[in-house]
Computed example of a mutant assay.
Amino acid sequence: MTRKTRIVEVRRALLSARRVLLLSHKSPDGDAMGSSLALLSGLLALGKTCDVVNVDGVPANLLWLPLAERVALLPEDGDYDTVVFLDCGNPDRPGLDLEPLRGARWVNIDHHPGNGDFGHANLVDPGACATAELVYEVLQALQVPVGFTAATNIYTAILTDTGCFRFSNANARAFEIASRMVHRGVDPSWVAQMVYDQQPVNRLRLLSRVLETLELSPRDKAACVTVTREMFRATHTGVEDVEGFVNYPRSVYGVEVGFLLREEADGRYRVAFRSKGRIDVAEIASEFGGGGHRNAAGATIEGTAAEIRQQIFDRVEAAWDDLLLRRREAG
Rank of each mutant, 00 (worst) to 15 (best):
Y269S: 02
G289E: 11
R6V: 06
I177A: 10
A192Q: 04
T237R: 02
A299C: 03
V257P: 03
R18G: 15
Y196R: 01
Q143D: 14
Y155R: 04
Q199E: 14
A222M: 00
Y136G: 02
N202I: 13
C129D: 15
H111M: 06
C88A: 15
G119K: 01
D266N: 08
V316Y: 00
D51E: 11
G292K: 02
A13E: 12
R173D: 14
R327S: 11
N122L: 01
R93Y: 12
G254M: 05
V107D: 01
A234Y: 07
G185Q: 08
V239G: 13
L39C: 09
R327F: 08
A151N: 07
D51Q: 08
D187N: 15
H236G: 12
D266V: 13
P59G: 13
A141R: 10
N54Y: 01
P100E: 14
L40S: 00
W106L: 05
H112Y: 06
N61D: 12
R18V: 03
G34L: 01
A72Q: 13
A330R: 06
V210D: 02
V242I: 11
L65Q: 08
V255P: 04
M1I: 06
L74S: 15
N247A: 13
L22R: 00
G114K: 04
L86G: 11
A305T: 02
G290Q: 07
A172L: 09
N122E: 11
C224Y: 02
V257H: 04
G147E: 14
P249Y: 03
T300A: 09
G116E: 05
S208N: 13
G291D: 03
A172K: 07
I158F: 04
E243S: 11
A60I: 12
G291Q: 03
E283K: 15
V271T: 05
Q140L: 14
L260R: 03
V146T: 13
N202R: 05
D266W: 06
C164V: 14
T162C: 06
G114T: 06
G254Q: 07
R184N: 11
V107A: 02
D117G: 10
S36F: 03
T152N: 08
T162W: 02
H112I: 11
C50S: 12
A282Q: 02
T300D: 09
V252C: 13
D220K: 00
T213W: 03
F175H: 12
P188G: 04
V191R: 01
F259K: 03
T160G: 10
A223N: 01
G303T: 09
L46R: 07
N61I: 00
D29C: 14
S217W: 00
A13R: 08
D161I: 03
E263T: 09
V8A: 10
R203M: 06
G78Y: 12
G103S: 13
S35W: 01
G238V: 05
V53R: 01
Q143K: 12
I177C: 07
C88L: 10
A265H: 11
G47I: 04
G303I: 06
L214V: 10
A32N: 05
Y269C: 05
H111Y: 08
